[in-house]
Nucleic acid binder design. Structure first.
Lengths: 138, 138
DNA sequence: TTGCATCCGGTACCCAGGTCCGGGTTCATC
DNA sequence: GATGAACCCGGACCTGGGTACCGGATGCAA
């Protein structure tokens, strides 16, 4: 198959394929005599694996490493170890968002409708000082 | 106070203050005769409000609008309404991350250690096809 | 063989939310 | 009055994950 067909089959933009190749996430495919990329049918699976791993929270660089590890069978930086780390990240993120949700709910319950007032009055449940310091929401 | 003092007091980079001003999130302050920004002590609170709102999941543009609404007291696009929308977003995000977490846990439980194998065997619990299609993890 | 879809490589651009740079003032202190 | 820190502005740069555009080459079918 050609690049456009692969893209269509995996549901991604054709440019994305070239981009993944540049990033080292997809291996360079064979070429036609004229220089066009030629893919085996398995390429669709590989591309889907990349997309799935992304959905599990891995960055493209991490996906690249995970696939490379798979190829050279190095043990202790394998999927298990990485997935454990990623799980911790994801759980931390969930905890963070849960705090945010609780604060939003509290603000709604109290009927807060003006951030200025909230910040300068005592009764608002939003913990402005704590919130100002750490991390981000997205 | 001057820009550097405000930045230090609120725990942000001095450049961030100029950036927020450019973005319309902070109002333009008075200037010294020589053109330096001069802030009242309340500016620290205002800056902390911005940071807190960001932590609650609002983008800078949303924060800008929220503060503007506060100033002109327009009713139904106030904090209440926006917070309700934001709450839905945050809960959707949590649900999404929870699915991701469940998949990671399942992959760990099954002892998966190679994405290639997982994708081509039947026993792996990672739903590659479903995962390939939607949204992102961060 | 002609016509048109597709592909090529390289580069620029997009989003958010900042941060850094550099050359030129201004402010506060000695 | 001189010195050095702080500040000014505009624009470039950063991360991450792509997307868009370009002029030119290739692939394939009628």
């Amino acid at each position: 198959m050609r690049a456009g067909e692969l893209a269509a089959a995996a549901g991604v933009n054709r440019e994305t394929i070239r981009y993944y190749e540049r990033r080292g996430v997809l291996q360079r495919p064979d070429r036609s005599p004229g220089g066009h990329r030629v893919y085996a049918p398995e390429a669709v699976t590989r591309l889907r694996v990349v997309k799935a791993a992304q959905r599990l929270g891995f960055t493209l660089d991490e996906v690249r490493d995970l696939l490379a590890v798979g190829r050279r069978r190095g043990r202790d930086d394998g999927l298990q170890a990485r997935a454990r780390e990623k799980l911790e990240e994801v759980e931390a993120r969930i905890a963070d968002l849960t705090t945010i949700r609780d604060n939003l709910v509290a603000a709604l319950d109290m009927g807060c409708d003006d951030l200025h007032q909230c910040a300068t009055s005592e009764c608002c449940p939003i913990p402005f000082v704590d919130l100002a310091s750490v991390g981000s929401a997205r």
